[in-house]
Design a protein around this nucleic acid. Structure first.
Lengths: 152, 152
DNA sequence: TTCATAATGCAACATTGTAGCGTTAACTGT
DNA sequence: ACAGTTAACGCTACAATGTTGCATTATGAA
């Protein structure tokens, strides 16, 4: 219900998985969001769409998506994982953590050219750049309510 | 029991806090480590030193240290906070997450010169660079035990 | 020494995530 | 279209990491 290129069902099937209600709904939810969602946010999303779901099944669906490379996982500053659809190939971009609403945004534009001199002995797999600050929508409400929207 | 500049007790007192057994021991433990420790690791450390302590008190001591800027907190990739003593002023260095033992190392040397063009509307407070890979001590044991040391 | 109160220590609870396991239903082959 | 296999579901229970409330202790100041 959003992508016209590969359908959620196709995406799932192409990775050798069974196309189930929950998986399709999860992919659609992640795909519709412009920022990674927590398990809880995905659950709320499914509820709104009247898709019955189980907490554990949701976790497993999300894990499976990550495992297949369909989604990726970012650790939030609260200790909840956030899941987002992988849109480019190796997923190499920065994340912005809003310290006000707690949301995480993918900044596709920001791709710092690392030229890092690692101390000897470390084997580098990948680098992650996390920017902390206040997101645009929170900036607008900073002087209003102390606790801002924060997508539920 | 390690710094000869300001003693742990002084550090605490100077920030307007009461000098208690647990706080002193926690500061000493963090100060003695070259990488951030989890709550659990700090607890183990205190036990070894025969310092009686309570789980909750420990959490509160750590939080207080962070609040006062004496320590800083890094989110591990497991969902456990890791605490480290603040050694320089604004704590601006990279962190290395070992995907094998789960430890986090502060790489004081690595201070990437960000010249980031943020998309409009974002207010940047600070940037965090996280490097993922395998740490030196794990590299040595990669071909041996599947589950490596990992400071307990 | 005395006193106010910051910190403690305990018990209960909250949140986020996993494990086990019997049941359901998605795909495959006919 | 049907039946069989088994991936995935949906429970329940549990684990790990924190947090809250509150009565008690003991730190630092007068």
């Amino acid at each position: 219900m959003s992508s016209q290129s590969p359908t959620a069902a196709d995406l799932i099937a192409n990775h050798g998985g069974r196309v189930t209600r929950t998986r399709v709904a999860v992919v659609d939810a992640l795909d519709a969001s412009d920022h990674p969602l927590t398990h809880d946010e995905v659950a709320a999303n499914l509820s709104e769409a009247d898709v019955p779901h189980d907490r554990v099944t949701l976790y497993r669906a999300l894990d499976w998506l990550v495992d297949k490379g369909i989604a990726h996982r970012v650790a939030g500053s609260d200790r909840a994982w956030r899941y987002g659809i992988v849109r480019e190939a190796p997923h190499q971009h920065a994340h912005f953590h809003c310290s006000r609403c707690g949301n995480v945004f993918c900044l596709e534009q920001v791709q710092p050219a690392f030229a890092i001199a690692l101390p000897g002995g470390y084997q580098l797999d990948r680098a992650e750049l996390i920017l902390h600050g206040v997101c645009p929508s929170c900036l607008l409400t900073v002087h209003a309510e102390p606790t801002p929207p924060g997508p539920r």
